[in-house]
């Protein structure tokens, strides 16, 4: 377990290498995650602190191995499940249905 008195995300002052300067433009699925996060808050289902809480609880391994918006969509889901917006059964069923539509992000849009 991580050090509970100095959690992984609380990284101010940690040793680290040069700042990587490369960037990317956001893909449409990333923009959609961003929009769903904002709109879900406006609907009153969760707060930005709830999103951060879920991200922090995902742990350092998630920070190292997942992209920013992969972690955000996981946190969004966690918060929507906690708010009772949909159930895991509904999510799982829907994800299987989507996967059956095709192999690429563009191909499976309804």
């Amino acid at each position: 377990m991580e050090n509970p008195e100095h959690r992984w995300h609380d990284m101010g002052g940690d040793a680290a290498g040069p700042v990587p300067m490369d960037g990317h433009d956001f893909a449409i699925w990333e923009k959609r995650v961003d929009a769903l996060v904002i709109l879900g808050q406006q609907r009153g289902h969760f707060t930005v602190d709830g999103l951060r809480r879920a991200l922090e609880d995902m742990g350092e391994q998630a920070f190292e191995s997942m992209t920013y918006y992969e972690r955000w969509v996981a946190s969004l889901n966690q918060n929507l499940i906690e708010a009772g917006v949909y159930s895991l059964e509904e999510l799982g069923t829907k994800m299987e249905e989507i996967k059956a539509r095709g192999d690429t992000y563009g191909a499976v849009q309804s």
């Binding site: 893909a27 969509v73 917006v85 949909y86 999510l91 690429t104």
Partner: peptide, 24 residues
């Protein structure tokens, strides 16, 4: 460069985004 996310192999997390959006 745009990320080649749109037409690459559909990922678990992309599938989750679509599912959340459609459910909502």
């Amino acid at each position: 460069p745009y990320r080649k996310d749109n037409d690459g192999q559909l990922t678990y997390w992309q599938t989750m985004e679509i599912a959340i959006r459609e459910l909502m």
